[in-house]
Write a protein that binds this DNA or RNA. Sequence first.
DNA 1: ATGAACCTTCCAGCAACTGGAAGGTCAAGC
DNA 2: GCTTGACCTTCCAGTTGCTGGAAGGTTCAT
Lengths: 133, 133
Amino acid sequence: MNIGQAADQSGLAPKTIRYYEDIGLIRPTRGGNGYRDYAQTDVHKLRFLQRSRGLGFSVEECRQLLALYEDKGRASADVRELTQAKLAEIDRKIRELTGLRRTLEHLVHACHGNDRPECPILEELSDGWPGQA
Amino acid sequence: MNIGQAADQSGLAPKTIRYYEDIGLIRPTRGGNGYRDYAQTDVHKLRFLQRSRGLGFSVEECRQLLALYEDKGRASADVRELTQAKLAEIDRKIRELTGLRRTLEHLVHACHGNDRPECPILEELSDGWPGQA
DNA sequence: ATGAACCTTCCAGCAACTGGAAGGTCAAGC
DNA sequence: GCTTGACCTTCCAGTTGCTGGAAGGTTCAT
């Protein structure tokens, strides 16, 4: 199948698929006309990539996961470890964003939002912010 | 003051400060030796940038905020709007990350984590995942 | 006077794509 | 059989927000 169809079936943009080929993630065969030809197994791998990228794995981590996925002798403990590290990272991101959210919300509430030039948001951005020295 | 001191006082790396100058965010004067010379107002702006970047505003948004900050006739409603948009974006990110976290946690729990090759994580990454078609 | 610790500019690269130009191919409709 | 338009190809450049390094100038303490 052509790249367009592979894109439709995997949920990735054609450009992205070509990029994944550039960096050596998947290697489709080529037809006589030079067009890339994707087999079902290729599409499976593309979906795999689409999912794992969507779950926050970096492309390098996806490469590892793909290798583990293709290696029938792999240990599932490796995969579990990778996933758990990712989980911790996601928790950290959520914590950071939540703190940030609290600060911004405070700023929005403190701001009267009218047409006068005084603005607590800008003042706090320049002088300091709540709960911080 | 030299760039190193400005860096210390603003919490930004010297490289970052030069970059901000490159893209036209701040313009320090120069001494006879060619060294950048930062006044206190420059350091204030740098701190302002450091803070707003840390709060998740993009550099372009920081440029807007800085313009508003410097413009005595600005309306605080503008700032409030920018901040509220940012808040909504942060909420969206938190929601996404929370969903992602749920999925990954399910995967970790489903994986026995031993040395046998079967691994539910990889299977779900390739075939679909819980709560999703 | 020598060495370290600054400072300068410029060039290159990171992730992970995305956009666009210039051109080849294919399938449908007239 | 010819055109039209949608596809496909490669390559080059840009995005965001820096960061690293090279090659060289300056300043300061010893």
